[in-house]
């Protein structure tokens, strides 16, 4: 990388990895312990029997909780806090859900296609009552495909940061500054992945998932709009304020 020393890349990487480890919501050890704790048949039936509004609200709460950890992740990244406030807000607004989806692969078990939700692992069928099977199955597919890349915690940390600090977001006031930081993160990620993966194309495969991430977020927005048309009072009164601010 021209004009960047290995020392600087290493500093950036270590800062991002530290931030991730501090703000990842569940440690790797906690996730390991929970690994085969799955929701029972009765518990799944219980989720399936909830009304659409109730389950949407529960999911909105969980997503918002996860987003709060992503905000903290961003705040502990030195380069992110050096961006102007406008761009910090823009990047988080447009990227926080994508980062949640990346982080989700840590709490996804590809052996039985279950995700950690409200304390235990459960499959897609748990979310039937939401009435957006396409979105749920797309999210599960994405998590499974990300798991197949067998990313280390460090790689997840750096990839999360690269997804967040993206020049593809409209209305950035200092796109060049964002670009420089993003490039350094990708260089650091490339360096780490070259060491960890036999597959030379591992980073390219990872970058190739980014359009899917964007599509998932668009689909989420569409589903929310459709849901809100039918249940405006649920969204206005019962959804977390941060969720509404970001996605409404």
């Amino acid at each position: 990388a021209p004009g960047v020393s290995m020392g600087e890349l290493d500093r950036i990487a270590q800062n991002i990895i530290k931030s991730h480890l501090e703000t990842c919501q569940y440690t790797a050890e906690e996730l390991q312990q929970l690994a085969w704790q799955t929701h029972s048949y009765e518990e799944v039936k219980m989720y399936q029997s909830k009304s659409r509004e109730v389950l949407w609200q529960q999911c909105a709460i969980q997503i918002t909780h996860a987003i709060q950890y992503v905000v903290e992740f961003a705040k502990r990244i030195t380069g992110f806090m050096e961006l102007c406030q406008n761009d910090q807000i823009l990047l988080l607004k447009s990227g926080c859900l994508e980062v949640v989806l990346v982080r989700m692969c840590r709490a996804f078990n590809p052996l039985n296609n279950t995700v950690l939700f409200e304390g235990k692992y459960g499959g897609m069928q748990m979310f039937k009552a939401l009435g957006c099977d396409d979105l749920v199955s797309a999210v599960f597919d994405f998590a499974k495909s990300l798991c197949s890349l067998q990313l280390t915690e460090e790689e997840i940390a750096l990839f999360s940061a690269a997804v967040l600090i993206s020049t593809d977001r409209p209305w950035l006031m200092e796109p060049r500054k964002v670009q420089k930081l993003q490039e350094k993160i990708y260089f650091a990620l490339q360096h780490i992945m070259q060491k960890n993966h036999m597959d030379e194309d591992a980073l390219a495969k990872l970058i190739g998932r980014i359009p899917t991430l964007a599509a998932l977020c668009t689909l989420h927005t569409e589903e929310l709009q459709a849901f809100q048309q039918l249940h405006p009072e649920t969204v206005n009164v019962l959804f977390p304020p941060l969720y509404k601010e970001l996605f409404n």
């Binding site: 709060q68 903290e72 406030q85 607004k93 601010e245 970001l246």
Partner: peptide, 16 residues
């Protein structure tokens, strides 16, 4: 900032 009061406040607050 005006349209994202909660996000702005989260960014301003000291680390939680």
């Amino acid at each position: 900032k005006e349209k994202h009061k909660i996000l702005h406040r989260l960014l301003q607050n000291s680390t939680s």
